Simulated assay, not measured.
Amino acid sequence: MSHFGFHTLALLVLVGMAGPLLVAIPRLRIPVIIGELAAGIVIGRTGFGIVDPDDPTFALLANIGFALVMFVVGTHVPVRDASLRAGLPRAVLRAAVVGVVAAVLGVVLARVFGTGHAALYAVLMASSSAAVALPIIDGLKLSGPSVLSVKAQIAIADAASIVLLPLVIDPSRAPKAALGAVAIAACAGVLFVVLRHFERRGTHERLREYSKQHDLALELRLSLLMLFALAALATATHVSIMLAGFALGLVVNGIGEPRRLARQLFGITEGFFGPLFFVWLGASLQVRELGERPEFIGLGVALGVGAVVAHGAGRVLGQPLTLGAMAAAQLGVPVAAATLGTELKLLGPGEPSALILGALITIAVTTVAGVVFGRHAPAPQA
């Protein structure tokens, strides 16, 4: 590969447009990341080898994108939605039941495929993605107590799985990862207290107005400062930057994310760094290894189906199967697992691609389940 420069950036932005192009296909509802991952696969290790995912500059930009993507995911968790509190107890109980079923399935899959990654598979199958499921629920205008409860369940599973992933993906480093996670959590807690203090005193509002009047984007600058500082702490303590981004997203969300900041974050994340990260991830994957080890295709399918089965266990507590299937949506956790597994060489050949395949299956199931539930759900009261 030639030296990383503007020509490479232009190529990455160009191929990243595959995501929006696929989204434009009517009725298919293909998530934008599918096109970005596919584009990365074509120009990366599996395809023509045009880009080198190991290039330090490419890797750094991708890590910035990873942190920003997880930051945005954190802001999507509905931590301030008071209407979710009524369904919280049953949501916690269902999440626990799902976790038990996923743990059993994780042991089974690890033995069947001989990988030894039972804990990792359990976390993946128990996880949910607020960034995927909640927009589907809101877009279909689903409502009612059962919908509010499943939203709470998704938020719980999303947060818990992101915290657990660094601990289970490499058990030998779990104690260090736990200490690093505690350090990130402590710093996030301090940031929350400080930011809430400034919010209550009106300092935050004055900062917004000053920034808006002078076109300074101070909120975005301060958010990036906190994000990169937490990411630096995560790197120093050998914790994934996914936790740093997610924790800061929860903090900003808990204070109340201003619309101006949300638009700015959306612009830099979805417009450049996010697509670049997913193209990098696709370029890092060796999908050909699935052909060389076709049993890992079976692993990917098993993980996707296992996630749907595990979340379907909520039926024993009265949850409709369609809502359980919607809660099975995965994105951030499998992507993070594939990223960490690739960077740290913790997963076997073909295994990262299998994790992504499993996530894609859950996204397809969630989309279909949402439409089915919407057709049979009672119309909302006027």
Rank of each mutant, 00 (worst) to 15 (best):
F277V: 11
A24G: 03
R85Q: 10
L299Q: 09
F71Y: 11
L142F: 02
V73S: 15
V193T: 10
F273D: 11
R263C: 03
G350E: 04
A178R: 07
V15K: 00
A188H: 00
D158A: 04
A247N: 06
V97A: 13
T237H: 00
P380N: 10
L261Q: 08
L230V: 03
L321Q: 06
L250F: 12
V108H: 03
V97D: 05
P352S: 11
G5Q: 00
L340W: 01
V73A: 15
G74P: 08
V168S: 02
H197G: 08
P380I: 06
G35P: 03
V69A: 04
V163M: 11
L290F: 07
I33R: 00
V251Q: 05
A338E: 00
V51T: 05
A159S: 11
L346G: 09
R221P: 01
A325D: 04
T46V: 13
G114Y: 04
G40V: 02
L88M: 09
G65T: 10
A327N: 08
F272W: 09
A244N: 04
A379C: 00
H7D: 11
G254D: 11
L216K: 01
T237Y: 00
S161N: 03
S143L: 02
L347W: 03
I50G: 00
V239I: 06
L140C: 01
V51D: 03
V101R: 02
H3T: 15
V32H: 10
I154M: 11
V193S: 09
L344I: 11
A86Y: 05
R208C: 14
A62K: 05
E289C: 01
V51R: 02
P258G: 05
G144A: 03
G202I: 06
T367Y: 00
G114C: 07
A382K: 05
M125N: 10
G274T: 06
L331G: 02
L148S: 15
G144T: 02
G35D: 05
G348T: 09
L285R: 14
A313Y: 00
L323F: 12
Q319T: 15
R260T: 13
V316N: 05
L285G: 13
L84K: 03
H197K: 10
V107I: 13
L142T: 06
I137L: 11
V32K: 10
G116W: 09
L303H: 12
L225I: 08
N63H: 08
F113W: 12
L323P: 12
I43Q: 12
P320K: 10
R263H: 14
E343V: 15
L124K: 07
V251I: 07
L218F: 05
M1R: 03
P171I: 06
G245Y: 09
R90A: 13
E351F: 09
D215S: 09
I25F: 03
V107A: 12
A159Q: 07
A155F: 02
V77Q: 01
Q264A: 15
A313I: 00
A359G: 07
P31K: 05
L233R: 04
N63Q: 14
G291F: 13
I154F: 13
R90E: 15
G341Q: 01
G291Q: 07
A18I: 08
Q381A: 14
G298N: 01
F48H: 10
K345S: 14
S146D: 15
H76T: 14
E257G: 01
L93A: 14
